[in-house]
Each structure stands twice: as C-alpha cells, then as structure tokens.
Nucleic acid binder design. Structure first.
Length: 683
DNA sequence: TTAGGGTTAG
C-alpha cells in the first residue's frame, strides 16, 4: 500500500519529541523501535511526479508508529484520522494487541464521532487483546457506547463492572440526560451525593455539571437550586471546574425561567472566568425571555470588555436586532462577522433571513436563503412565513412547492406558514387544497391553529357557512382561536347572529380577556341592543377591568413616539395637525373619498365617537412625514386593527408622498407602496 | 491526573 495516498497519513508528524503520552505508550508497547518506518510517516514535500517513473513501494509503518499516529490524531481532535489509521493498522495484518494508551485514544475517537460501527470494532479489538480492563477503561467504553446510542452494549458493560466510581455515575448521568431521562439522572446524582456523605471526592465538579444539565433538561428549579447549594457546600474548586459550574448554573436558571437569578450567577463570576460561552448564554437567556433591551445592553458591555465575539454571539444578536427593529445594527453585525472571516452558521443565517422577513425586505431575505450553504426546515418555514405575512401568498406557495419537490417533509409550522399565506392573500382554493393535503397524512393532522387559520380564510371571503361548518366538524372541542376567527369573519360580513354566537362562546372560554368584552360591546351597539351593551359595561366595572386607549407608535431614528386618538400631548402638536390637514386636502384632490363609518371591534366605543380624522395612526404618520427626510420609509405599530378609512388614506398617502409606509396592526403587517397595500385589502 | 461538562433559529 502506498502510504502517500492514504489520506490520514498525509498529516502525520514525525514520532520525535511531540508524543503526548510517551510513558504509557512505551510501557504498554515494548516493541522494537523502528525509526526508519517512523520517518516514512513524515509529511513529504509534494514533488511533481515524473510520468515515466513508477512510484517506489514504501514499507508498511511499524505498529508503534501507527499507534503513535493514532494517539497524536486523537489528542489533536482529528478523530476520523485516528480511526483511519486504526483501519490501516488492521488491514491485511494478523490480529495484534495494541497498547492500552492507543485503545484509550480510539475509544475517545469513536465516542467523539458517535460512530457505532467504529465503536463496535474498537471495543471488539480491545476486548480480544486481553488487555487488563480496569475501572478507567470500563468507564471509557461505557461512555463511548452511550454516546453512540448503543444502550444494550452500555448496559452489558455497566452490569459487568467489578468496580465503579464517581466517574461511572457521571457517565451514566450524561447518558440518561442525552436519552431524555433527566429525572433518572438526578436520582443517580442524589444516590451518589448521599453515598459521599453530602460532599467529598465523589461529587466532583464534572458530575455536578452533568447533574445541573439534568435539572435544566427536567426544567426543575427546585432540583437546580439544590444543586446550586451543593456547589456552595463544595466550596471553590479549580478554575476550570468553577467556570463550567457557573456556566451550567447560569444556563439552568435562565432555561427554567429565572433569568434574574442567571444574571446574579453571571455577575458573581470572576471576569477572567466569563468565557464567550458565559456571555452568550446570558444573552440567550435574555432573548429566551423576550428581554431584548437587556440583551442589547449586555452586548454593549461585551464589546466594551474586549471579549472575542463568535458566530453564536452574532446569531443571537441578530435575533435581538430583529425584535428591536434595528436593521442597521444587524447589517453592521453581519459586516463585522464577514470582516472577522467568520461565516454565518445556519442559525445566524436563519435569524438574518427572519429579520429581513420581519422588515418586509423579502428580496434580501430571499438572497440570504438562496446563498445559505445549508438549510433546514426552520429556514424554509421562516421564508414561507415571511412571504405570507407580507401578503405575497403566491411566492409563499412557490417556496412551499419547491420544498415538497425537494423531498423535504413539512411539519405543522410549515403548514401554518403556508395556510397563513393563503389567508393573508385570500387564496381560498389553494388553502383548501393544502389543508386537505395536511389532513391526508396522519403525521400532520391539522391542529386547532390550522383550523382557525382556514376558518379565517373562508370567513374573509364571505364563506361563513363553510367557516362555521369547520368549527362544528372539528374532531376536537373548538378552541378560542377558532371562535375568534369566526367572530372576525362574521363581524366583517355583518352576520350579527353568528358574530354574537361566537363572541358569547369566546367570552365564556376566556372571561378575563378584555378584548372579548370590547368586541361584544361593539357588536351589541352595532345591532342596537343598548341594554346588553350596558350589561357588558357593568360586568367590566364589576371585574375591575379597564379598556386601554388605542394608540400608535412611529419609530424615528431608533426612538418610538406614541400617539393616542386626538392627541394633543406632543410638543409639535400644532404642526402635526397642520400637516395632516394639508395631506387630507392633497389626497382628496387625488380622488380619495371617505369610507362610511365603521365600528372597530377592538376599540372602546367612546373613543370611536371621536372624529376619525384624528385617529392615532394618522397623527403618527403625519409626525413621521415631518420628522424624516423624503424617501425614508415609515414604520408604524399600533394596538388595534386598521379601520377601512385609515387603510384607504394610507394607500393614497403613499401615492401622493411617494413614501413607503409599513403598518403593523393588531393582526398583521400592511406594506403600503404607491397606492397599493400588501394585504390586497383583505384583513 | 485521568474517562463524564456549557450557549442558537421558524
């Protein structure tokens, strides 16, 4: 065999001084030294081969040389190379026992690669070699089997062990956590802790870290706190152990919903112990609990502290920027990542894609998607959902069909995204077809949210009977979302009978949800049932529930400005109203005719009596227009649905001012551009 | 002085 062409050997170094475990190897393998074979493992300069010269066959390297190569590869983390050399050593040679140190390396390599085939081969070789297997070796093999998911083999080793120690328990605990049995792992720890008399050598930091991981996986704060007490009881250990322990505790508190406790652990860490993982975990904790502002603050602190940020930091921060609407920050972070030569991983790319989707920058989102070196279902779902809620239903369906054509199996999130896309774009037939496709597969049986989505789709098209049938035929008790969808539809199409039926059902199901009262109240007023309306108001008073005022926000230079109906609080109030009056004149000249009065479902009736001319969204837009330079797109967020008149006005405004206006109302995004809205007037 | 140890997306 020509060793030069065997891939793993191309990276081998000479046997000389760099051997990481000379003692173990030398004692376990007292075979003859063969420096000439060792020399043959040196990387050789690649010389251009003469066409007429046949390669000179090289001698097979000696066993000690191969063993040394295995150990070196494994120590350097080149696990696949280590196993390749092992295969090479066995190929065509009679069975020869290897030194124990080489077996250690091979077991570690098979475990790291989670390769059951290699694990079986290595274990067989090791057992056949007649080497003396102590607790150390058994622990290693046990860990390897667990990592490779070979549970039967793991049990056989565990049961056959003459001696077990703290490491054995740690290994078993890790295996249990990985197999989704964190409580069983915690039981092992408790046993171990009791045996050690509450502390001592057995409860070493690594075992406690595994136990904390188990508490995290079990979502158990009491178990996590108990472990925290154990850590305090144990007192400080070495720097490395302390670092891992703090990090595991931080993660545990944060994933168990105690993010402030997590922050205390973080603050309690010595600055030199705050590794990038600790910072990232803390950031992730804030993101997990929707505390984006604090994540941003921590990120600034992180930049100031000089920590070397990694891909993980950027991926997490892209989500934060997305939530805070800081597109420029996101772009800068992305540029910084490229500058550092760090590729954006699949998570980061998906976060970026999602961010562009949320900003309605669908072309940018698509570019990110197409350039991703690897995609998964989450990336596909993000893009489909993005097209959907920005009113590009056809594009969403195109991507969905491509996903199916590529043989990817959609899940319930994919279906929700594509059904929502049909809903937002009024694509009834396609929505029906997709719902049927979903129902045909037992693995993707439509859930309540999919039903609610299709009910809305039917409802908005005026197919109220079909919508109501969907509720009656649902194979489970209809949920509040489903009744809510029917309510919206029947209200829009002025079917008061069905609307009241749905509203009453909804109120019975969620008596504390204030919006249900507002909807019912407005319905009673609309249908002239003043007595019933008064009863609703009384109920609200009795329950101490208060309907909050509808408001709109406009974001200008990273700052939010809030407006209420007929607001006069803003210092530039006079200017805003003047601008609004001018704008109204301009759009009237362009053909705008006011829509007839409409009672909004989610606004207090008293507020609706105020002239629509000063709806909060109009004030926010007028302020946005006078506070930004021409061509700057405006972003408005509001607490309530857009009324038909405001929707029409904004369409005209984008035509006369040539501005792009994005409104996120109580249920969706509206992208207004040159007189057209992305919702296609369905909302 | 060694086997078991930490963070992410729809």
């Amino acid at each position: 065999m020509d060793l030069q062409v065997a891939p793993p050997l191309g990276t081998l170094r000479p046997l000389a001084s760099t051997h990481h475990r000379p003692k173990a190897s030398a004692t376990a393998a007292p075979s003859t030294s063969s420096s000439s074979s060792a020399e043959s493992l040196k990387p050789r300069p690649r010389l251009p081969r003469q066409p007429h010269q046949s390669p000179v066959p090289r001698p097979r390297p000696s066993l000690p040389a191969l063993c040394a190569a295995i150990e070196r590869h494994a120590a350097a983390g080149r696990h696949a190379d280590a196993l390749d050399v092992f295969r090479l050593a066995r190929a065509g040679a009679p069975f020869t026992p290897l030194p124990l140190a080489t077996y250690h390396s091979l077991v570690a390599a098979a475990a790291a690669l989670r390769d059951p085939g290699a694990a079986a081969a290595v274990a067989w070789h090791m057992e056949s070699s007649g080497s003396e297997m102590g607790v150390y070796e058994h622990n290693l093999v046990l860990a390897m089997y667990l990592r490779c998911g070979m549970l039967g083999e793991a049990r056989r080793v565990f049961e056959g062990m003459a001696e077990r120690n703290g490491v054995t328990s740690g290994v078993v605990m890790g295996g249990l956590v990985d197999r989704g049995r964190p409580r069983a792992a915690l039981a092992v720890f408790r046993e171990m802790w009791a045996e050690a008399g509450g502390c001592g050598e057995v409860a070493r930091p690594r075992a406690v870290v595994v136990a904390v991981r188990a508490a995290t996986a079990a979502g158990s704060v009491p178990a996590g706190r108990q472990l925290h007490c154990c850590v305090v009881k144990m007192g400080p250990c070495d720097d490395d152990g302390d670092r891992y322990l703090s990090c595991a505790l931080l993660d545990m508190y944060s994933k168990c919903g105690q993010v402030d406790e997590a922050r205390r652990v973080f603050d309690g860490m010595a600055p030199h112990q705050r590794t990038i993982v600790a910072w990232n975990s803390m950031l992730a904790g804030y993101v997990l609990h929707g505390r984006s502002e604090e994540a941003l603050e921590l990120y600034h602190e992180m930049r100031g502290s000089g920590v070397d940020m990694d891909q993980f930091t950027f991926s997490t921060m892209l989500r934060v920027f997305g939530r805070l609407g800081l597109l420029e920050h996101a772009k800068q972070a992305h540029a910084g990542l490229i500058q550092r030569g760090l590729p954006l991983d699949i998570v980061g790319n998906t976060a970026l894609l999602d961010l562009y989707c949320k900003w309605g920058r669908m072309e940018d989102a698509r570019n990110v998607f197409e350039r991703m070196p690897k995609r998964n279902l989450i990336s596909w779902n993000a893009l489909i959902a993005g097209y959907g809620y920005h009113g590009m239903g056809d594009k969403a369906i195109e991507v969905f069909e491509r996903l199916i054509a590529e043989g990817i199996v959609p899940n319930h999130v994919t279906f929700l995204a594509v059904l929502n896309a049909c809903r937002f774009s009024g694509l009834v037939d396609k929505g029906k077809r997709i719902f049927q496709l979903m129902a045909r597969n037992p693995k993707t049986k439509p859930r309540a949210m999919h039903h609610a989505c299709v009910i809305e789709l039917f409802g908005r098209e005026g197919l109220l009977d079909e919508a109501y049938l969907m509720i009656r035929r649902a194979p489970f008790t209809p949920t509040a979302n489903m009744w809510g969808a029917l309510l919206t539809a029947s209200r829009v199409h002025k079917n008061m009978h069905l609307a009241k039926l749905a509203a009453e059902q909804l109120l019975a199901m969620e008596p504390e949800k204030i919006n249900n009262y507002v909807v019912l109240l407005n319905l009673y007023i609309c249908s002239g049932r003043q007595d019933d309306a008064c009863k609703v108001v009384e109920t609200l008073k009795r329950k101490g529930l208060c309907i909050s005022n509808a408001c709109s926000w406009v974001t200008i230079k990273k700052k939010d400005y809030r407006f209420f109906f007929k607001d006069s609080l803003h210092p530039q109030c006079a200017e805003i109203y003047r601008k609004l009056d001018t704008l109204m004149k301009e759009i009237k000249e362009a053909g705008y005719v006011a829509e007839e009065n409409e009672l909004l479902p989610d606004i207090h009736p008293d507020e609706q009596n105020i002239s629509r001319a000063y709806h909060s969204e109009r004030l926010a837009i007028a302020f946005g227009l006078i506070s930004t330079s021409p061509c700057t797109p405006l972003r408005i967020t509001q607490s309530h649905h857009l009324c038909r008149d405001c929707h029409k006005i904004i369409k005209f405004l984008t035509k006369v001012t040539k501005r792009e206006i994005v409104v996120r109302d109580g249920s969706r995004f509206h992208h207004f551009r040159l007189g057209i809205c992305s919702c296609g007037d369905y909302w």
